[in-house]
Amino acid sequence: MRRLVNIRPGRGGKVFLGAAPLALVAIGYVVASAARQAENPADKLLPPIEAMWSAWIRMSLEVDPVTGSIPLWADTVASLHRLILGLGISTGVTLAFGLVLGLLPVARATLGPLVAAIAVIPPIAVLPVLFIALGLGETAKVALIVIGITPFMVRDLASQVGAIPEEQMVKAQTLGASTWQIALRLALPQAMPKLLKGLRLSLGPAWVFLIAGEAIASDVGLGYRIFLVRRYLAMDVILPYVAWISLLAVLMGLLLSWISRKFFPWDHTRGAE
């Protein structure tokens, strides 16, 4: 009898094993929904698939007479705009600070404690401060994302840059490289795939901060919508929206992976860690 630790599923087996729990959850939902509908046709907590589908069609195709736009697309555009702006600013700040902190011991000694202190502040706790200081508009919501993910990304990148082997740093200097040339030709290119990895890990938190910001003060956005329709227990809208947000998050993650493979193939070859 082979040990359990040595039994590895094949290709088809993996697909089957991976799909089974998902299918079970879906079937479980359909069964539970049907049971609740049978008892009370007006039940709102577990709407049947058809109800969610018709809500989805309504949100994604019909123009809302009040705002004059189609809710799903207006929400998606507004949310992605905030998210991408926040991620972009965080990435830029991270690149600059991460490189400097990772490369220069003087900068690490000067700014390291400050970054560490900022990193322990729970970002949501700062949200009121942001709304007071920056108003209820777009700025505060983007700022929440930036404040929420940048400290982690900076520390992650700084440690990755700091982990470039000393042998490489010495070698570059024996080849005549200045500090600037080391930053530009050695640290920056090696930091890029690590930065993308850090960004991918930060996507989850970034969505959390985005939805938190939108839930509290907004008039459009995916987070705004689900918190709005919550008042009417409109699970038929909330659940498709949650699925849509998850799909967007997965697609962004895949896009970042693809960029990393496409532009930094050396980080993905066999033997690279």
């Binding site: 082997p165 042998e167 490489q168 010495v170 070698k171 570059a172 200097q173 024996t174 080849l175 005549g176 050695l186 290119p189 090696q190 930094f264 050396w266 980080d267 690279a272």
Partner: peptide
Amino acid sequence: EPGPDRGVVFQRYSVFPHL
């Protein structure tokens, strides 16, 4: 500090992985 008048080869990690 290291300079171009002294070349060096270490046991490992002497080359740049991204080039």
